[in-house]
Design a protein around this nucleic acid. Structure first.
Length: 693
DNA sequence: TATGCGTAGT
């Protein structure tokens, strides 16, 4: 008897182990191994089936999961809930709902599953409907789910109404309500609520600290952190991240060193801080020193290596990772894409079994950046669950290959747009020489109640610069002042360019002088501005000043800065360096700069010309010929001729091969009249006057 | 309540 029980016990234990293994394999994407184990198992119980269904769902094999669900010998509540969760995860909401209705019995989990699905999707009305239908006695947790849903969508007033209606509140309810304020940047209301809280714990204090950090009020964050009665590891990590985000990496490290009970998250947060500060070696040191690592640690390090361009190191780490994590794989994918190693990118993409939105979006962005919008569109269509980033990526992709009509089509097809969607559209117009449309979009955006951010201002100011629209530019400057984005470097630089291109070089200089911090682009914008306004000498002087001051003192050093670390290189920076190389006659580095520049501006004639001139000065005539040929080969083209005039704050733009509009026709007819009148007056043209001087 | 991967800009 005793012996028999022991045998049964061993069997149960064995099944239990195998069930757990199936779950583990499912979680780590090893679905084939899970299936193999499942089919090899001679004894299975309901949990075995449930584990297998869950594993199949996690790996996107919903139909197989459903097949198993339909054919399993005995189903319990967990089987139903697992299957519903799978459908919800894959957005097959109708099937999930059908199962939910068909269930012989529903528990709190089933209800919570459906409600949290709807709250996550932002369909709060549907969630609320279920909330009101809930047949059991609503316990506190149930109210909490709904409040969280409202809070996550920024619907603070409704959350508060529900909170006030609650028959019973526990500390979690108070904290959830507090988080509605702190997570939505409402720190004034948050503070008020916090002061009046009937129940408070360390979470409440942490929420306040985190809220202040989110709105950039580091002083208040610190104040609350210090006042926290019994800070826990979360308090410390929150504060540490706040310091790191404000660039106070040394203070963050000091806090880290002071921490008594470090856990894996503390280590991860510190590593992440170093990675974001490009201190990859310090990050690697911590990574190797830490007592144990989780998937966050690995992903952070992999992403860190990707950040500094050490892709092979990143790959090596990914290979070493015990359980491949989708975030880590996506970091690697993104690294290959950034470096245009598409074959390897595809390889990683194919290795990922259960792809999530981020992973799909990364791949779509990859194809977009390669100009392969056909491939991007295929993926876009194939994707079931799209988010704002997906749509925005498509807009950018079409804009980049000059297909603004398609970009606009995508934009118009969006049900919800965010500030990035608008910025992408504006940038698209800008990049395609449609600065007027860019400015029109800026107006429309305000009309739809979207608040422009620093990026919007930077682009729109750039549009003003392109059009030399001084009045509009000044208005924009005014808006920037009111918005508080004046200290943003992107905006500051855009203002410099705007004033410079509008012929107000002194204003540009004033903006430059007022900036707290300047970078290579600020210098470049100002220098270009002086040159543009005919002050070539001042421009060169300024450049000398830059070379003697900042990082560009040594050209090769400047290259190091640009190539990897502190500054994200773009056309402007490479252009500045190319120009610097030209001045200093450094052909070797000039060639590299030109090469990099051609990645950004493959068809810009002036880059080719600059390089050719350098080669000519160095007497390398063969190379001059090569450059000339590649210019021809890449069909380098000049910008279409464009002129504009501002009359009574209204901008009128004239472009060669621009379609005729009623206004244009009128202008031309007036011009004809004027021309004939002038010729009757026997005038001398300005140009011939200059010729005679 | 804390940590990782994806979109825009000078």
């Amino acid at each position: 008897m005793k012996q028999n029980l022991k045998v049964i016990g061993e069997h149960t234990n064995h099944i239990f182990k195998q069930n757990t293994q199936i779950t583990q394999l499912g979680k780590s994407g090893q679905i084939h191994e899970a299936v193999k184990l499942f089919s090899e198992m001679t004894r299975k119980n309901t949990v075995t089936y449930n584990s297998m269904i869950s594993a199949l769902n996690k790996n996107g094999k919903f139909n197989d999961a459903r097949h198993l669900f339909d054919n399993m010998p005995r189903r319990n509540l967990v089987s139903w809930n697992t299957m519903i969760a799978g459908y919800l995860h894959s957005d097959r909401i109708d099937e999930a709902y059908r199962l939910f209705v068909k269930m012989p019995k529903r528990d709190r989990f089933s209800w919570t599953l459906m409600i949290s699905y709807f709250t996550r999707k932002g369909e709060l009305e549907k969630a609320r409907e279920l909330f009101d239908l809930f047949p059991h006695k609503r316990d506190v947790a149930f109210w909490n789910v709904m409040i969280r849903g409202y809070g996550e969508k920024g619907r603070i007033v409704e959350a508060r109404r529900l909170f006030d209606e609650m028959p019973l509140r526990v500390v979690v309810s108070w904290n959830l309500m507090l988080s509605c304020y702190t997570r939505n940047g409402e720190m004034r209301l948050g503070r008020e609520f916090f002061e009046g809280m009937a129940l408070r714990d360390v979470v409440s204090w942490n929420l306040m600290v985190d809220g202040f950090i989110e709105v950039g009020d580091l002083d208040s964050a610190w104040e609350y952190f210090e006042k926290t009665p019994y800070p826990n590891v979360v308090s410390w990590v929150t504060m540490l991240c706040g310091l790191a985000r404000s660039g106070k990496i040394l203070e963050a490290r000091r806090l880290f060193d002071q921490m008594q009970n470090k856990n894996v998250v503390s280590w991860n947060a510190m590593i992440s801080a170093y990675v974001k500060d490009y201190q990859i070696e310090e990050a690697a040191r911590l990574f190797s020193d830490m007592p144990n690592r989780d998937s966050f640690s690995w992903t952070t390090m992999i992403d860190g290596y990707v950040h500094v361009g050490q892709l092979d190191k990143a790959r090596e780490l990914l290979n070493q990772m015990p359980y491949k994590d989708i975030a880590a794989q996506t970091a690697m994918l993104s690294g290959y894409i950034k470096n245009k190693r598409m074959d390897e990118a595809c390889q990683v993409f194919n290795e990922i079994a259960a792809r999530d939105i981020v992973c799909w979006n990364t791949m779509i962005a990859g194809y977009s950046q390669m100009g392969r919008m056909d491939k991007a569109l295929d993926l876009f269509k194939e994707m079931k669950d799209k988010d704002l980033v997906t749509w925005n990526t498509m807009i950018i992709g079409y804009a980049q290959i000059g297909e603004m009509e398609e970009a606009v089509k995508i934009f118009n097809g969006m049900k919800i747009k965010n500030v990035v969607s608008w910025n992408s559209l504006i940038t698209g117009f800008l990049q395609n020489g449609l600065s007027m449309d860019a400015l029109t979009s800026f107006k429309l955006m305000a009309h739809e109640g979207i608040t422009p951010d620093h990026s919007t201002f930077a682009c729109s100011l750039s549009a003003c610069a392109n059009l030399a629209a001084l009045q509009v530019g000044k208005q924009m400057h005014n808006k920037v002042l009111k918005s508080g984005h004046l200290n943003d470097l992107f905006v500051g630089n855009a203002l410099i360019t705007m004033y410079a291109k509008c012929g107000r070089i002194l204003c540009a200089q004033l903006i430059f002088d007022d900036l707290d911090e300047v970078d290579v682009i600020s210098w470049n914008s100002l220098i270009t501005g002086y040159a543009l306004n005919g002050y070539g000498k001042q421009g060169v002087q300024l450049f000398e000043q830059m070379v003697s001051k900042g990082r560009a003192g040594m050209l090769s050093e400047a290259f190091e800065v640009v190539r990897g670390l502190k500054i994200r290189a773009n056309a402007g920076i490479w252009g500045a360096l190319l120009a610097a190389c030209k001045t200093r006659g450094n052909l070797k580095l000039g060639k590299i700069a030109a090469e990099q520049l051609s990645e950004f501006e493959p068809r810009k004639t002036s880059n080719f010309v600059l390089l050719a001139n350098m080669q000519a000065e160095a007497g390398s005539w063969d190379e001059v010929e090569n450059t000339r040929l590649s210019m021809k080969y890449t069909e380098a083209e000049k910008q279409p001729g464009c002129s504009w005039i501002e009359v009574r704050h209204q901008l009128h733009c004239f472009q060669s091969n621009m379609p005729m509009q009623p206004e244009t026709a009128e202008v031309y007819s007036n011009l004809k009249t004027l021309t004939s009148q002038i010729s009757n007056l026997d005038c001398v043209s300005k140009s011939s006057l200059i010729d005679n001087l």
